[in-house]
Simulated assay, not measured.
Amino acid sequence: MRRVLQAAERAGAGAVAGINGLSRRVELPGGGGPALGPDRPTSGVCGDPIRVAGREFVTRARQIIAADNLRLELVGVGGVTQADHVMEYLQAGADIVQTATGFMWRPNLGIDFQRLWASSEYSVQRADGRGGRG
C-alpha cells in the first residue's frame, strides 16, 4: 500500500479511495448455486458487508500518509449505510466519506448525518493529530 500511495502522489493525485466493493461468491439460499447464474460464481459485494474492510483500509492508509508526509486526501468508502458510519470513517482518518449503496436504503442519509453532527459534541481526533469539530 505504501508504494501505491507514494506513486499516486508522484503522479499528481489529490486523493485516494481504497475499496468500493469486494469480489465474493454470491449464492442462492439453501445451496442453490451462484445467484447470478453458472457463468458468474462471484460478484462485487458492496454495502454493509464491506464496511470493516473499508475502515481497515482507511486506518492503514492514514498511517502511511502521515508517516510519509504525503499530500493526499483520503476518501472513506464502503458500507456507509448510516450516519454513525460516516463518523467511524472520519475517526479512522478519512478526510471525505462517500456513500452509494447507503442512499439506496436510506435516501435521507445526508440529512441524518447533518443532524447527528449538529446535535452532538462529536469531534474527530485522528492519529495524525488533525481533527476538530465542524
Results as ranks from 00 to 15, higher is better:
residue 1 M to I: 12
residue 2 R to T: 11
residue 3 R to F: 11
residue 4 V to H: 06
residue 5 L to T: 02
residue 5 L to H: 07
residue 7 A to V: 12
residue 8 A to M: 11
residue 8 A to R: 08
residue 9 E to P: 09
residue 10 R to F: 01
residue 11 A to I: 07
residue 13 A to K: 03
residue 14 G to H: 11
residue 15 A to S: 09
residue 15 A to M: 13
residue 17 A to R: 10
residue 19 I to C: 09
residue 20 N to P: 09
residue 20 N to A: 06
residue 20 N to R: 07
residue 21 G to C: 06
residue 21 G to E: 04
residue 22 L to G: 00
residue 24 R to P: 00
residue 24 R to L: 04
residue 25 R to H: 06
residue 25 R to T: 01
residue 28 L to E: 04
residue 28 L to Q: 03
residue 30 G to H: 03
residue 31 G to W: 00
residue 33 G to K: 01
residue 33 G to L: 04
residue 34 P to K: 00
residue 35 A to E: 02
residue 35 A to F: 10
residue 36 L to W: 07
residue 36 L to R: 05
residue 38 P to M: 01
residue 41 P to K: 01
residue 41 P to H: 00
residue 41 P to D: 01
residue 42 T to G: 00
residue 43 S to G: 04
residue 45 V to I: 05
residue 46 C to D: 03
residue 48 D to K: 07
residue 48 D to P: 05
residue 49 P to G: 00
residue 49 P to Q: 01
residue 49 P to E: 00
residue 50 I to L: 05
residue 52 V to L: 12
residue 56 E to A: 14
residue 59 T to V: 13
residue 60 R to V: 11
residue 60 R to G: 05
residue 61 A to G: 07
residue 64 I to M: 10
residue 64 I to V: 14
residue 66 A to C: 05
residue 69 N to S: 05
residue 69 N to Y: 03
residue 69 N to T: 01
residue 70 L to Q: 04
residue 70 L to W: 09
residue 71 R to Y: 02
residue 72 L to Q: 06
residue 74 L to I: 04
residue 75 V to I: 13
residue 79 G to N: 02
residue 81 T to Y: 03
residue 81 T to L: 08
residue 82 Q to S: 11
residue 83 A to Y: 09
residue 85 H to G: 03
residue 85 H to T: 02
residue 86 V to R: 06
residue 88 E to F: 02
residue 90 L to I: 09
residue 92 A to W: 11
residue 94 A to S: 09
residue 96 I to M: 12
residue 96 I to H: 10
residue 101 T to G: 08
residue 102 G to I: 08
residue 103 F to H: 13
residue 103 F to C: 13
residue 103 F to Y: 14
residue 104 M to C: 13
residue 106 R to N: 14
residue 106 R to D: 10
residue 107 P to D: 13
residue 109 L to S: 10
residue 109 L to H: 12
residue 110 G to S: 14
residue 110 G to K: 13
residue 110 G to P: 15
residue 111 I to T: 15
residue 111 I to D: 15
residue 111 I to W: 15
residue 112 D to N: 14
residue 112 D to E: 15
residue 112 D to F: 15
residue 112 D to M: 15
residue 116 L to R: 15
residue 118 A to M: 15
residue 119 S to E: 15
residue 119 S to T: 14
residue 120 S to R: 12
residue 120 S to D: 12
residue 122 Y to Q: 12
residue 129 G to M: 03
residue 129 G to W: 02
residue 130 R to T: 03
residue 130 R to G: 00
residue 131 G to Y: 01
residue 131 G to D: 01
residue 132 G to C: 01
residue 132 G to Y: 02
